[in-house]
Computed example of a mutant assay.
Amino acid sequence: MKLSGNTIFITGGTSGIGRGLAEAFHRKGNKVIISGRRKALLDEVARANPGIDTVELDVTDPAQIASVAKALIEKYPALNVVINNAGIMPFDDVAGPLDDAQALHSIDTNLLGPVRVSAAFVEHLKRQADAVIVYNSSVVAFIPMAMSALYSATKAAIHSYALTQRFALRQTSVRVLEITPPWVDTDLIYKSGDPRAMQLEPFIEQTMTLLETATTEVVVESARQFRDGAGPNEHGFVDYFNQMLIDNPLPAP
């Protein structure tokens, strides 16, 4: 995708990867609009980056998604890029009882949220000469994390959805890209400083470079082992990865 001259809407743009992408695109001369649930955090990003616009949005609310999309299309008729970044990563226990409320919230946020946001903009995007829908998935879409099983499953579903939407839009001006981050040290769970995690700045830098020529997926080098680990021999990799997390747990917050 072109890295300048776009009008870009990014969900979950107040922290972590979403904010990193927003600021990187802003520096390259794009018009950037970010959304988030908390006005105070939106205001903080806007103050730090004059020219970035903000809008409050809870991606679990279908009516609010429709309303915000309508307003943004009217205000920014040149809008041509939608980046679905908003997400949550709660821990769960698939060997025990289900927390049904948490499960529904995870699915609403991580799966139905991006699907609804993309659907709200797709007809508008088809009218643009050069448009892009981006999904932020995860390496755990391919090698799932047992301690966050439903999160992993929602990211696997996003990967599947991106594949089919890319095919469905193949004869339009809309391209579909998927960013597949490794473990990046952000506050998605909590910033831990764990040396196994990639730092945000190099992740954003490498992702921006890869986005320029990407046609399907954006996979930084440290995520490649996980992306390539899926397939007929994935069971051993899944077991090894999850046993490693048990033997070497995350540092306490």
Rank of each mutant, 00 (worst) to 15 (best):
E201R: 13
A86F: 05
G20W: 05
N6W: 02
V132Y: 02
A157M: 04
T207E: 05
A101Q: 14
Q102S: 15
G51V: 09
N85F: 06
D130E: 14
V55D: 00
E221Y: 01
L112P: 00
A146T: 12
L150Q: 04
A157V: 07
V94P: 14
S67Q: 15
I10V: 08
M89K: 04
F91Q: 08
L79R: 08
P202G: 07
A119M: 06
S160R: 08
M1Y: 10
Q206A: 13
G5T: 11
A149K: 01
D53T: 11
N84L: 09
V238Q: 12
F9R: 06
A230S: 13
S152L: 05
I246R: 15
P50C: 08
F142G: 01
M147Q: 11
D53I: 00
H124A: 08
L98D: 03
K28M: 12
L163T: 04
L211K: 00
N80Y: 07
Q102P: 01
G36A: 12
K70M: 11
H235N: 07
V82D: 09
A63I: 06
I34N: 08
N49R: 08
N110K: 11
Q128P: 03
L125T: 03
L150G: 03
S173W: 03
V184E: 07
K70I: 00
V115S: 02
D239G: 02
L169G: 04
N136R: 00
A157Y: 03
L211C: 12
W183K: 01
A131F: 07
I10Q: 05
S118K: 00
L3C: 01
V134E: 06
R127N: 10
G36R: 08
D61S: 15
I133P: 02
I17M: 11
F241D: 02
G229K: 07
V134S: 05
I133Y: 03
P97W: 01
Q102D: 13
Q206W: 01
S137L: 02
L125V: 06
A141D: 05
P77K: 09
Y76M: 07
R27N: 12
K39F: 08
V219M: 04
I107C: 08
D187A: 15
I8W: 03
V94C: 08
T60I: 01
A63N: 13
V115A: 14
A214I: 05
P97N: 11
A131V: 06
T172G: 06
S152E: 10
T60D: 02
I52D: 04
L177A: 09
S106G: 00
E234S: 13
Q128R: 12
H124T: 10
V140S: 09
R166D: 08
Q102E: 13
N110I: 05
A101M: 06
S222L: 01
R166M: 10
A230K: 11
T164D: 10
E234Q: 14
A101H: 10
A168I: 00
I143D: 05
P182C: 06
A141W: 04
D92E: 07
D247M: 05
P90Q: 07
G20S: 10
T109L: 09
V32L: 11
D108A: 15
D93E: 13
V174M: 05
T11I: 12
A252K: 14
N85C: 15
S137K: 01
D100S: 11
A40I: 13
D130V: 02
D130G: 02
F237H: 11
D99I: 08
A168L: 14
K126D: 09
V220P: 06
D58H: 12
